[in-house]
């Protein structure tokens, strides 16, 4: 009974922390909204290059790896939108706090840093929703005529939410490496490149050789953007394996649980090494 009342008190408290942190992050970043708005130029320009590349590639064929030109461009459109929706810098922020010793102040706060950082991400992305995402979506929809409408909106929303959490947990785990390495710029970049490659951000994973696709199928990276993109399209396939949408979204949830367990493990081991002095 007392545990239940404890949880009842804890939930509104955590929600108020989330609301306050997200709101202050939103306000803080709103001061730099012109930086964020650069995306409105950069996003479509990158997409324009993709459009020309793939138009040239499809000039002599109608399908490639089972995808038509329209499907290929839709893939890149969705990938971009997912990227803007789920982006965060939890890895950089955390390694900076650990390296400078400023992380110490978070040890004294009544809220876990991970939860605080997640709330920050929510605030940051809420701002991005209208500064980056909405204009880009409209440009893709009306200028490039890319039909960014999910096949099954409910599942697509759920998959995007899971991707949002998974990107955060992955980046946070990368940031935790600062407990061991102090300066993590190198490993951060290495893992981010690996993520871009293995999550299908650069090219659909079905373009990789079959053996590689099989490896990628068992790695968690595909759940970050390849899976949400496929859920958005309404059809999942990798390494010759076809899964139903509920099945693949279920696997995405499993990936989140695995990543959460990894975060707890890294935290448990890393926090013992923190000296609070900085380097």
């Amino acid at each position: 009974m007392s545990t239940q009342s404890g949880i009842k008190k804890q939930v509104p408290y955590l929600f108020s922390v989330l609301k306050a942190t997200a709101f202050s992050t939103y306000k803080e970043w709103a001061a730099y909204r012109s930086q964020m708005a650069v995306t409105i130029f950069v996003g479509p320009v990158f997409f324009l290059t993709q459009m020309f590349i793939w138009r040239a590639v499809y000039a002599t064929r109608t399908t490639l790896n089972g995808l038509t030109l329209e499907q290929m461009l839709t893939y890149y459109g969705i990938i971009s939108v997912i990227g803007y929706l789920t982006y965060d810098s939890a890895d950089w922020d955390l390694q900076w706090l650990i390296r400078t010793g400023s992380f110490l102040t978070f040890m004294l706060r009544p809220v876990s840093h991970c939860y605080y950082a997640f709330a920050q991400k929510i605030g940051h992305r809420l701002l991005a929703l209208w500064v980056e995402l909405l204009p880009i979506y409209l440009i893709f929809f009306f200028v490039f005529k890319i039909p960014l409408v999910p096949a099954e909106p409910g599942w697509a929303l759920l998959s995007l939410t899971f991707s949002f959490v998974l990107v955060f947990l992955t980046n946070y785990c990368i940031g935790l490496s600062a407990f061991w390495l102090t300066k993590t710029e190198g490993i951060r970049r290495a893992l981010l490149v690996l993520l871009d490659l293995c999550a299908g951000m650069l090219i659909p994973l079905t373009f990789f050789p079959t053996g590689m696709q099989k490896v990628l199928f068992y790695l968690p990276f595909q759940f970050i953007s390849y899976v949400p993109t496929r859920v958005f399209i309404g059809h999942y396939e990798l390494a010759g394996i076809t899964l139903s949408i509920p099945q693949v979204v279920g696997l995405q949830l499993v990936a989140i649980l695995v990543m959460f367990a990894l975060y707890r493990l890294l935290w448990h081991l890393g926090i013992k090494r923190f000296t609070g002095v900085g380097a």
């Binding site: 190198g186 490993i187 490149v193 090219i203």
Partner: peptide, 22 residues
Amino acid sequence: YRGDFLMSMLIMLLVEMAAPLI
């Protein structure tokens, strides 16, 4: 930070290989 330097240098190489890989 030698380790980080070597890692960063390697990554700079890999990052630029995205377009050739595609």
